[in-house]
Every structure is written in structure tokens, then in C-alpha cells.
Computed example of a mutant assay.
Amino acid sequence: MRFDFFDLQLLLHIVATGSLTQGADRAAISLQAASERIKKLEQYFETPLFIRHNAGVELTTAGHALVEHAKKLNAQKNKLEQDMQRFRQKSAESLILWCNSSAQSEYLPALLPQYLMHYPHINIDLHEAESSEIVDALTKGIARLGLVSSFFDTRHLHTQDFASDPLVLICPDSHVLTQQAQLNLVDALAYDFIGLMPHHSLQQSIETQAKLLGFNIHYRLRLPNFSAIAEVVAKGVGVAIMPARAAQRLQGIYHFQAIQLLGAWANRKLLLASQDFDQLPQSYQDFAKFLLARKPQDEQSVLVQDHITPQRQQTDKK
């Protein structure tokens, strides 16, 4: 039989109470189980540890010696556990960030890996939604932190500017709209569109604006991301709307023209929003400070003069 720390702790409980019964209670085991454990200890060391009498129990000389060792071993066990505590893996905490599709695809991929490297015990769950849905979720307390378009009413929330996020229309190099330096959405709605999948928040927002103007967008194709859209537009299939930041990035890969869209809806900013930043849990406050400290530098929308067609260059020289 091998004894363990539970046996030693039981021994100390019995000594502290002067009673086998009370010692068993402290150890949260039955009197019979306590008696059997002490008996096996005595058999292991081949000597009595207690003198039993009607008033309780009394340690023998061997019992006193074992108690001293038990105290030292328990103290060492406690110190061992304390020393090893710092090596235990902490349970990961998850932060939920609500964001629109532009924030998710164009801004967060560069920032979040930095944050995760700094905070290895925190996970981030991105919840993509339309900005209006995010504002509603923040208002109702369903969401704690969100990145939303400035086009929507956030006056009842606490907000901080995060990035300029204008939208542009992209079209093939030979498209008739490339003659325009800027245009209103209504001027493009008569043409065939390449769009994001129906569940994407940006596409839902574009469709909402079109319906307000009395149009239903005609899609030739829907694709899952801006890169796929840019490739198809460059091949002459249709026009599309995307964030200026995405267009700038993709013009280094595909040949298309980007045209500035007019109106508050298109010339938007991304706002970091919460009901009250000061009332957020500390982990969310730290995350918000991280995002704001590393927010992108203000970028102008894709400048049409940087990507104008030869026909327009000739017109400008006249």
C-alpha cells in the first residue's frame, strides 16, 4: 500500500481535532473510511500511530514523528502548487467585434494578428452585419463594440473615428462611365452590375440606396469577395461598387477604372462605437484602445486623375 497526501492531511485533521470522528468530518469522508486509512498507514509503517481511548485518540511517539513529516510535506506540496500555478494555461477569453464588410475585409486583417500576438490568451470573434444592424445591436446591449458606417445615426452612442471609408464605382477601362470623374449612384444604376453575395452587408446597403432611388439593381454575377469582383469587372462583364481602399489595392492586379461616388452615403467614415467605452469590461477597453492607436491614416478615395483614360487626358489638355 502506498500512502498519499490525502492520508497525511487526514492525519493532521485527526490531530487538530483530537478525534477520529471529527477528523473524518473535516476530510469529508466516513468514519469507517478514515479508520481504514489510518489502519493501513500503521500497517505500512509497521507501528501504531494513535493510542485510542474513550475520550478520543492520542499520538504515539511514531505518530508524533509522522505528523512532523506530514506538516513539512504538505507545506512543500503547497509551495509546489503555487510555483507551478504560473505555468498553467489560462482559459482563453473571447471578444466579439461587430463589423461591416468593409471593415472586415479591408482594415481588420492587418490589425487583428498584431493584437492576437500581444494577447495570446484572447480570441476574437468577428460578427459581420450591416451597419444599421450593428447600431441596433449596440443600442439594445446585444453588442458591446462595433465598427459602423458614419452614414447611420449613432448620436445616442459613443463613437470614435476609425478610418475614412468612401465607396467608388469600378468599371472596365473601355466603359462609357470612365468619361466621368465623379458621379451619383443613380447615374450607374442603368448598367449591369457585378455584386457581392446577397448576405453581404455592403451589398444590402447598396441595394437599399438603389431602391430609394426607384431602381432594382440588375446583377450579371454575384461573387464572394472584392478581388473576384475586380477580376470580372476588368474583363468587361459589368460595373461594381466597392470601398476605395479595396479598389486602390486591387488596381495593382487588375485593369479597371475607379470613379468617385457622390453623396453622404458613399463618402462615409468607419466609426468605432459602443454604448459607453468607459463602462466596457477592461479587455474590451484595451481592445478599443489598441484599434484606435493603430487606426489607418486618412486616405483619399481613389483619385480619378491617377487612373484616367487616354481619351480623358486628351480632353484635359485642350
Results as ranks from 00 to 15, higher is better:
23 G>E: 01
264 A>W: 04
79 K>Q: 13
10 L>A: 04
107 Y>A: 00
199 H>W: 10
138 L>H: 09
174 S>L: 11
161 D>I: 13
111 L>C: 01
101 S>L: 03
77 K>H: 08
242 M>H: 04
1 M>C: 09
14 I>S: 00
301 S>N: 10
99 C>W: 02
118 H>Q: 14
232 V>R: 12
204 Q>P: 05
29 I>P: 04
125 D>L: 12
251 Q>K: 14
58 E>Y: 01
6 F>H: 14
91 S>Y: 14
155 R>P: 02
47 T>D: 07
18 G>R: 04
166 P>E: 12
185 L>G: 02
238 G>Y: 06
37 R>S: 08
290 F>H: 03
209 Q>A: 12
146 G>W: 05
61 T>K: 10
218 H>N: 13
78 N>I: 09
295 K>Y: 06
248 Q>N: 15
153 D>P: 00
263 G>H: 08
129 A>H: 01
302 V>C: 15
133 E>M: 07
314 Q>R: 11
84 M>C: 11
25 D>I: 07
277 F>E: 11
8 L>F: 04
43 Q>V: 07
290 F>M: 08
282 Q>N: 15
286 D>M: 11
256 F>K: 08
1 M>N: 13
228 A>L: 14
191 Y>D: 13
303 L>F: 05
140 K>Q: 13
70 A>N: 02
82 Q>M: 09
96 I>A: 11
198 P>K: 04
117 M>A: 15
23 G>C: 01
124 I>G: 05
251 Q>R: 14
234 A>R: 05
117 M>E: 14
152 F>Y: 14
31 L>C: 00
316 D>H: 14
152 F>R: 03
163 A>M: 04
155 R>Q: 14
134 I>W: 06
226 F>A: 15
130 E>M: 10
252 G>A: 07
318 K>A: 14
83 D>R: 13
62 A>I: 00
